[in-house]
Nucleic acid binder design. Structure first.
Lengths: 200, 200
DNA sequence: GCAATAAACATACAGTGTATATGAGTCAAG
DNA sequence: CTTGACTCATATACACTGTATGTTTATTGC
């Protein structure tokens, strides 16, 4: 229901209706709506591709990152929930356990694992938050830019205007790439870790 | 009100009460709650430190990134709103205009600007989303790790357990750094841009 | 002083999450 | 065979939400 009509379309009464029951029946299986959200979020996290601990860390973490990105796009409500939830569940524990294990096997110190993991997660969530917030679909960038261009004041915002004009004129597609920043990060993490290996 | 008690504590009636008025009076100044949220978000965006277009892009974008990060931490509800909002406002336009201008002056192509900007934004939002979601304060990491350690199954999640144990034992503080990933990104973007300069 | 406008208001409605209490069904122990 | 415990669906009710509608009051320009 949330996948199709958004998180606000999922009320206890509507959920109960879809199950041919009343709203209060749900409370026999779930403590409240917050627990329901936690379970939903767990379901998404379980769709992440867990890295193989003995695999090459770069490819393992890249594959996982792409799968996380895909899952968060499939379930657009998930990131919203992440911002209102608190305690980590066993689903997140399993995921982090694999990531940590993979990096530890590659010779990372605990601090290096933490920092590297955190940086990659940042890219995944941040890239997704921007894409989910972006109002137009990728195949409509040019037409959207043409439509929006008159609303971007040339005097007030000359550079933003020029940038939008480049997309409107078809000089470049205007599409960003999830793997661009991801690769930058992974490579620079590798260099950083190699340099600080003996220092740790 | 949202800063102090969270976004859900800001209802039209409570806001009106704080202004010594009734809920419906607000609708004479604002179209609805969605517009109220947009205005609140704009207020946060206006707290961002706009980069000097003629400054050195690395330091300019780094300073801006840190100010964005600080603003999003001051107003914890802002990121949540970003995920439910749609059209960009003039406040966001002003911000992106400065960023784009700064990078353009540094010789970036439009595509390079877009990709670099997007990657840096990803780090800011993603890092913040994790920090806001994290349940414990930095000065309580060790005690929190000691408390949570028994709940992390050694058999099921050995690496996560070991990582938490390292924090609990005080082997390392367990604190990540916003500027770590930021610096990695900025430096690798600089290298990438320099290499592709003549190719664009 | 009067008309026009702006802003605050009271009321009402549909919808939300959920506390509480009741009732029907299943199952094991005496 | 019965009794008691337990699970689960239900009905009712409460406090709250955003806001559509219509009315009253205050303020301004002429």
């Amino acid at each position: 229901m949330a996948d199709q009509n958004g998180l606000e379309a999922l009320s206890m009464r509507k959920l109960a209706g879809a199950l041919n029951a009343t709203a209060m029946s749900i409370y026999n299986h779930v403590k409240g709506k917050e627990e329901l959200h936690t379970l939903m979020l767990d379901h998404v996290i379980n769709e992440f591709e867990h890295p193989d601990i003995d695999g090459e860390w770069k490819t393992m973490l890249k594959r996982r990152a792409i799968s996380v990105y895909a899952a968060l796009k499939r379930h657009k409500w998930a990131l919203t929930l992440m911002l209102t939830k608190s305690a980590p569940t066993s689903a997140t524990l399993r995921d982090t356990d694999r990531v940590v294990g993979c990096l530890r096997n590659a010779g990372f110190s605990f601090k290096q694992v933490d920092w590297a993991h955190n940086a990659i997660e940042s890219h995944i969530y941040g890239y997704t938050i921007q894409e989910l917030n972006f109002p137009v679909e990728p195949d409509e960038y040019q037409s959207a830019a043409q439509h929006f261009l008159p609303h971007i004041s040339l005097k007030e915002f000359p550079h933003a205007h020029a940038s939008a004009k480049a997309v409107a004129d078809g000089d470049y597609h205007g599409m960003t790439d999830f793997e661009f920043g991801l690769d930058l990060l992974i490579e620079s993490i590798a260099a950083w870790q190699a340099k600080n290996q003996q220092a740790e």
